Simulated scan of single mutants.
Amino acid sequence: MSELRRFVQVDVFTQQPLKGNPLAVVVDGAGLSQAQMAAFARWTNLSETTFLLPPTDAAADYRVRIFTPGGELPFAGHPTLGSAHAWLASGGDPKKPGEVVQECAIGLVRIRRDGARLAFAAPPLRRQGPVEEPALRAQVLQSLRIEAAALVDLVWVDNGPGWMAARLQSADAVLSLDPDFNVMKGLKLGVVGAYPPGSPQQFEVRAFVPTLGVPEDPVTGSLNAGLALWLQGAGLAPDSYVAAQGAALGRAGRVHVAREGAHCWIGGDVTPLIHGQVRL
């Protein structure tokens, strides 16, 4: 039998409503089956929908399951920040002052308050280094409709979802892309290019996941986390920078990256938009 459950919808990586990446959060997710969760995620048709559950790890404050319209993800960034915000706003009391510990399929993820902003610790890369497979490189070029000379780097930045990243020569080159999503099927592809020195943001990012029913994601925390570890590790980005994402979709997402010691923090503002109940 269906029942009313607490529900919120937030806009992540923005202070301005409707300019970030929306996230649907079922706060009372306990008791729902995987089929029910997947069906609701298909119904919301957002890039991600999350369900908050009691933790199974004593070190965690809550557990989250993350669904796209096409399936479940082991980890994702904007759902991490949005779920943490929803958990706190719904009366969640962290075990450690100033820090929330989220349990998800990749393990525990630390989230801290950075003023009014939340930031999560970038999880380690599960796969990294150059993409060597000729067939994959050819598919990337064809799906982005670019020549080989336009592709500066193609590397793995996989922290769970399976991201690979293409670096182009400039932010303008990233914004001008007109991808072929039919060719791109099977890829989880991020694209990044740098702005000129002195710009308000240092990089433009786009994320394409047609396999999961999300041709282009508005603002993507997991991809930006993987990009940050790669770009900073390769000396291509400073310890602190701002990445822009979503302009191609009429959004204005901003991802705030800061490396402090051994940790790289991926931060963003969360703006609540809808609060109520859903019958599931």
Rank of each mutant, 00 (worst) to 15 (best):
R117Y: 01
H263N: 14
W156Y: 15
G261S: 08
F208C: 01
Q232W: 08
G20Y: 08
A119C: 11
V152L: 13
L4Q: 14
G253L: 09
Q102P: 12
T220N: 02
L227W: 02
V242S: 00
L141D: 08
S83T: 08
C264M: 04
R279D: 09
P123S: 14
W163L: 04
A243M: 02
A39E: 15
H263M: 14
G246R: 01
L32K: 03
D57M: 03
L53R: 06
V242C: 04
R279H: 07
A86N: 09
F75R: 03
V152D: 15
T80A: 10
V191A: 04
V205T: 03
L18V: 13
L227G: 05
V209M: 12
V101C: 12
E133M: 11
Q277K: 11
W43A: 07
A165Y: 06
E72I: 10
L136H: 09
V209P: 00
W230K: 00
V140Y: 02
G70E: 08
A58I: 06
A39F: 00
R254S: 05
L4P: 00
M1C: 06
L32H: 09
Q245A: 13
Q142A: 15
A237Y: 02
E204K: 08
Q201A: 15
A173K: 11
S143P: 07
A76S: 11
H85D: 04
G226C: 01
L136D: 01
P124S: 08
A262R: 14
